[in-house]
């Protein structure tokens, strides 16, 4: 029994079908609990007023936006090295989820920034690098859509993902150098002084786990869809050949 058994599409479909209900339920419950807790039962911040409640969407979405790209990177590497189709399709399935997370992080950030910084948008390093990440997602998805041959598409997007990662990290540093920011430092860190207060951090943790499970559920489901779509393509091709 090794993890590579799940590289078999049939096996993957079968087991993901069994795991899926748990994933849906647990992510739904955790997200609901975290967001309701955060929305209804947290105090207002003495400086930011009720706008702190946005943190329960903003931070988990931003976290998953980056982790989704990281997961795509790992999946692309597995595809390039071991040629498992499920891996390539999982990377393809994750990209739209990642771009939605990026959009949520950008949108909530803009809405939050309006009253706090007095502007919807500033060319702050963090904001700018998220915008660049958004562009990378767009290019990645567009490349998948543009190529007909599925194996070629998987190969090319995998390499784009690898090269893109390097340049995304490079952009992060370039942008840091280019402009000093308005954005505060990390909301959660091991340094106690920097951390947000406990009243906020507990529901935040719940939301983060909820968003993570939501991401997993979506990726599993969408990978299943991609596997089936690929199978339809293969069956149709075989049919044409026999006819």
């Amino acid at each position: 029994m090794s993890i590579w058994e799940y590289a078999n599409p049939r096996k993957f479909l079968h087991s993901s079908e069994r795991v899926m209900p748990y994933l849906w339920v647990s992510s739904g419950v955790l997200m609901a609990v975290g967001l309701i807790w955060g929305f209804f039962f947290t105090p207002d911040d003495y400086r930011q007023g009720s706008t702190v409640k946005i943190i329960f969407l903003h931070v988990p979405a931003a976290l998953m936006a980056i982790n989704a790209w990281f997961m795509m990177l790992v999946a692309s590497l597995i595809w390039v090295i071991r040629r498992h189709h499920v891996s390539a399709l999982a990377a393809k399935a994750a990209a739209p989820v990642g771009i939605v997370m990026t959009l949520i992080a950008l949108a909530t950030g803009a809405i939050w920034g309006q009253p706090m910084w007095g502007t919807w948008w500033a060319w702050d390093p963090r904001l700018t690098s998220f915008l660049v990440l958004f562009l990378f997602y767009l290019g990645y998805i567009a490349l998948w859509e543009a190529i007909d041959n599925p194996d070629t598409a998987a190969d090319l997007t995998a390499i784009l993902c690898l090269v893109g990662t390097v340049f995304a990290v490079l952009s992060r540093y370039a942008v840091n150098f280019w402009n000093q920011g308005l954005h505060q430092g990390a909301s959660l860190s091991l340094d106690e002084k920097e951390n947000v207060a406990d009243a906020f951090s507990n529901p935040l943790y719940v939301c983060m786990v909820g968003f993570g499970l939501f991401f997993l559920a979506m990726v599993f489901y969408r990978t299943g869809t991609e596997i089936r779509a690929r199978r339809i393509k293969a069956l149709l091709a075989r049919q044409r050949q026999e006819a």
Partner: peptide
């Protein structure tokens, strides 16, 4: 809950995210 003067901000953030 009483969101004070920022109720539009918070509600639109939640609305937009849940819609997406």
């Amino acid at each position: 809950p009483d969101l004070g003067k920022y109720s539009d901000t918070v509600l639109s953030a939640y609305g937009a995210s849940l819609a997406l």
